[in-house]
Design a protein around this nucleic acid. Sequence first.
DNA 1: TAGTAAACTACATAAGCATGTAGCCTCCTT
DNA 2: AAGGAGGCTACATGCTTATGTAGTTTACTA
Lengths: 230, 230
Amino acid sequence: MESSTDPGGTAAGDLTGRARIRDAALRVFAERGFKGATVQLIADAAGVSTGLIRHHFGSKEGLREVCDAFAIGALLDQADRSLGDEAAEPGFMTGMLNESEASSRYLARALIEGSPAASALFDKGTRAAEGFLSQRWPDRFPPGSAAVRDAAAVMGAMHLGPLVLHAHLSRLMGADVLARAHAARTPAAMVAVYGAMAEFFGGTEGARIGDAVTRESEASAPDAEGRDER
Amino acid sequence: MESSTDPGGTAAGDLTGRARIRDAALRVFAERGFKGATVQLIADAAGVSTGLIRHHFGSKEGLREVCDAFAIGALLDQADRSLGDEAAEPGFMTGMLNESEASSRYLARALIEGSPAASALFDKGTRAAEGFLSQRWPDRFPPGSAAVRDAAAVMGAMHLGPLVLHAHLSRLMGADVLARAHAARTPAAMVAVYGAMAEFFGGTEGARIGDAVTRESEASAPDAEGRDER
DNA sequence: TAGTAAACTACATAAGCATGTAGCCTCCTT
DNA sequence: AAGGAGGCTACATGCTTATGTAGTTTACTA
């Protein structure tokens, strides 16, 4: 069993067979999804036989679980190493994924297909957002309220959007946005968007639209405030 | 060949076999992805035999193409009907999907797995955002510049994030956010998030972080301004 | 150096699945 | 009422794919 920090890096071909399979699986699962990835494809990518995959991981599902644990481990390692929970504040959930590129791509896919690690990632981001919001604006986002729960979850989704939609982003931006060399462009653009939207909702037109949307929501769920079902 | 407006609704069981298959496929593709959806599953959901699917659509791939065309058609119909391109302004790309729930769920999946319709949707949102940004702040987002291209694409991804991540959103918000009854909560939460982030980036702490992120991006790509490669 | 355990491969097996075929049923036309 | 076309089904076929088995190589240990 190897440490999730993986000293020695995940790049070269001088890895143990097990690790090479895991890295290949991360890539292939990310590119084609779990169903779309065949063990033959993964074996080829790793330069091994399909039998070896079974030998080390028991089954395709077993391999997926190891990938899951590895990806979330790599991510949390890095979250701790860089900035603690502070990191999750604005849009830097994306930046948080900066280092472990392979894990990021895998988690982008897992967030859609569903996995414990992906749910943990989303929950972590949302919890951080919840703290961020209700600490700074306790009046608008009272701790534990439905308002902060909704806002934090949506904020999490907005910040993970560029990750899960990286293919479209890359297509329109003309570069692989998850590649190390271009990883900074997305957070920068997010800040620009926030800056613009700040002014928009500060102006009369934006305020009008914002009020309309809020009112519509309250109309369709008049008892939403302070609700705590489940 | 039926009109994409589908008068008579898509709800009841009094539909033509072809339409029932299409609706079932929309659901099953959305839930399990293209690979995960078997034609048997779709046939069962539609209450027909697998042979009928082949009869009407030729192949699973053919069925997918019809679903694609139907979903994007339903969407564009509604976009026109409601507010023209104005709709894509803030986060209402999500609201835009309000009506055609089945198509929304399908497109959420298609945005990840890749399809012409999904790309068209993303492009449309991004184009609208580009107009929105460069019309209001021509200095900050000069038309055709790399800055506006990046910001618009990221804005599109942020606004589609809640759609593609609806499963996580629903899990944390305790309700199916794509269901008609709760469709208003997400846009309302987005407005709340924008309001909060507006103040954050207006304050000293937020400005500092925003500047740092922007500077980091410019450092790694000093010639990004005015570039127009494709 | 002999032995052995694990890493690893080639090939076999069987299940799942999309696609293909032959024909029945229903309704519409005349 | 005869006829035919298209909606529709049951069953067959063959490929893809995960899993299973038997055996070989590698490398460490005693």
